[in-house]
Amino acid sequence: MTTHRLKIAPEYFGLVSVGMKTAEVRLNDRNYREHDYLYLCEFKNNEYTGRTVLVQVTHVLSSDEFPSGLKDGYCVLSFDIACVHFKFRG
């Protein structure tokens, strides 16, 4: 089991953090596996915002399994939320 730190745009971060987005299409350049963790870090205007969400991969659909729907080398990562962290400004 591996933890992968990845950037995520604000519009997608919000949906993931409330459980409305439960999958990501990504280049499979990290050999993603079921049970891996994705540490998704909100990235806006070329910097990290401090807001993060940790999700656990529940399924990996590779381009080998779905060649008509995914570009070669890409995958769909299905996941469940493990933990959400919002940076509060005070």
Rank of each mutant, 00 (worst) to 15 (best):
residue 10 P to D: 05
residue 35 H to W: 12
residue 46 N to F: 09
residue 42 E to P: 00
residue 72 D to Q: 11
residue 9 A to L: 14
residue 37 Y to R: 09
residue 23 A to R: 09
residue 22 T to Y: 10
residue 21 K to P: 02
residue 81 I to D: 05
residue 64 D to F: 08
residue 54 L to G: 03
residue 67 P to E: 08
residue 75 C to L: 02
residue 35 H to Q: 11
residue 30 R to Y: 09
residue 6 L to S: 04
residue 14 G to F: 02
residue 32 Y to C: 02
residue 62 S to T: 14
residue 46 N to A: 10
residue 74 Y to T: 08
residue 38 L to E: 01
residue 30 R to M: 07
residue 25 V to Y: 06
residue 86 F to P: 04
residue 47 E to Q: 12
residue 12 Y to N: 12
residue 90 G to K: 11
residue 67 P to Q: 07
residue 58 T to K: 08
residue 57 V to W: 06
residue 6 L to Y: 06
residue 57 V to N: 02
residue 87 K to V: 09
residue 46 N to L: 09
residue 77 L to R: 02
residue 73 G to C: 06
residue 22 T to E: 12
residue 59 H to K: 13
residue 20 M to H: 15
residue 8 I to F: 07
residue 23 A to Y: 11
residue 55 V to R: 01
residue 40 L to D: 01
residue 78 S to R: 15
residue 63 S to R: 00
residue 23 A to I: 02
residue 10 P to R: 05
residue 34 E to F: 07
residue 77 L to D: 02
residue 18 V to Y: 10
residue 87 K to Q: 14
residue 87 K to I: 08
residue 32 Y to P: 01
residue 50 G to M: 06
residue 44 K to R: 14
residue 29 D to I: 05
residue 6 L to D: 01
residue 45 N to A: 09
residue 37 Y to W: 10
residue 65 E to W: 01
residue 15 L to P: 02
residue 34 E to V: 11
residue 43 F to T: 00
residue 80 D to Y: 14
residue 72 D to A: 12
residue 54 L to N: 06
residue 10 P to K: 06
residue 69 G to C: 11
residue 23 A to M: 12
residue 19 G to S: 06
residue 49 T to E: 04
residue 69 G to N: 11
residue 34 E to C: 09
residue 61 L to G: 04
residue 52 T to P: 01
residue 37 Y to S: 06
residue 8 I to V: 15
residue 28 N to D: 12
residue 54 L to R: 10
residue 34 E to K: 14
residue 55 V to W: 06
residue 72 D to T: 13
residue 43 F to P: 00
residue 40 L to M: 08
residue 29 D to G: 07
residue 65 E to Q: 15
residue 25 V to S: 12
residue 81 I to L: 12
residue 14 G to W: 01
residue 38 L to R: 02
residue 3 T to C: 09
residue 19 G to Q: 06
residue 59 H to M: 10
residue 58 T to R: 07
residue 25 V to R: 10
residue 48 Y to D: 04
residue 30 R to N: 07
